[in-house]
């Protein structure tokens, strides 16, 4: 029998970009009004974590950092079959950049306990940096496999395929390891019936919920508040500027039949000239 693994998966709640809710007329986002969702990239990380448990045995813990509503995505993770969730939530974390975030997560991960594999999404859709995973690995002193599109565990070693420009690398890493999962990995399976049923029970019973989802703060995990939030962040957004309208004189074609519209545009744009080399 293979050793049961302690598997962590890091997830984040992000604003739903597909929804127009919370979109201000000037193009900025009102995060309080915006719809919330599980970061799409994290779905692949969840799948990787659950797959590892299914193949090799173990326990999956989903860890998140965010304001209290982020508990929703831990519930979602539970529905998919994750065993328990931990949410780091603390006002002092506001305005954390990636370095401060990685520090806070580092303290949370070590507080939760021993682990063999940590899975993260490749990046988030709201920050787009892909930095927190590797920064957390650095804090934990771990090897890392980013852009991982497939893997198996053999003799306590991870054999992985990592995407590179124009191809891929085959890597072998010792455990423990941190893996960021590419979106060419398998998509997340449907919610499990058992998981969904359990979450239904938890929604009715606050006491029971606490057994599965624990909310922690900086003091509990032993994080130094000075190293979190605005104070602990080496970068700031100093200025934002509107993006000028390049071109700005788009000639619009509308209102006619598709045939007329297309011939109008083909003539105006001289697109036909590009049909031959």
């Amino acid at each position: 029998m293979p050793a049961p693994y302690e598997i962590f998966v890091l997830v984040k709640q992000v604003p739903d970009q597909g929804s127009k809710a919370g979109l201000n007329p000037d193009g900025t986002i009102d995060r309080a009004k915006a719809k919330r969702m599980l970061n799409p990239f994290d779905r692949y990380a969840l799948q990787a974590a659950l797959h590892t448990k299914k193949c090799y045995g173990g326990r999956v813990t989903a860890i998140s950092m965010g304001p209290p509503p982020a508990v929703e995505i831990l519930m979602e993770a539970l529905e998919h079959g994750v065993d328990r969730g931990v949410l780091l939530s603390d006002r002092r974390l506001a305005a954390s950049d990636t370095l401060a975030t990685a520090y806070a997560l580092f303290k949370t991960v070590t507080w939760v306990g021993r682990f063999d594999l940590i899975f993260c999404g490749l990046q988030t859709t709201d920050g787009d940096t892909a930095q927190v995973g590797p920064q957390l690995a650095e804090r934990l002193g771990l090897p890392q496999i980013t852009y991982c599109q497939d893997f198996k565990v053999e003799d306590d070693k991870v054999h992985a395929e990592r995407i590179i420009e124009g191809g891929y690398q085959k890597l072998i890493s010792e455990l423990p390891v941190l893996i960021t999962v590419a979106n060419s990995y398998h998509p997340l399976d449907y919610k499990s019936f058992r998981g969904a049923w359990r979450v239904q029970q938890l929604l009715r019973n606050q006491e029971e919920q606490k057994k599965y989802i624990q909310t922690v703060d900086l003091d509990l995990v032993g994080a130094d508040p000075e190293r979190c939030g605005l104070k602990g962040s080496p970068t700031i957004v100093a200025a934002t500027e509107k993006v000028g309208e390049i071109g700005g004189n788009c000639s619009m074609h509308e209102g006619h039949s598709p045939t007329d519209l297309v011939s109008e545009v083909l003539d105006a744009s001289k697109l036909k000239e590009f049909l031959t080399v």
Binding site: A102, D128, Q131, T146, Y147, I164
Partner: peptide, 22 residues
């Protein structure tokens, strides 16, 4: 790139300095 995005955050975290992506 897949290399730079793998390496840069490690360096930034080690030296606790700021890093801006993309």
């Amino acid at each position: 790139t897949t290399t730079g995005r793998d390496l840069a955050p490690r360096i930034a975290a080690h030296f606790e300095t700021g890093l801006t992506a993309d």
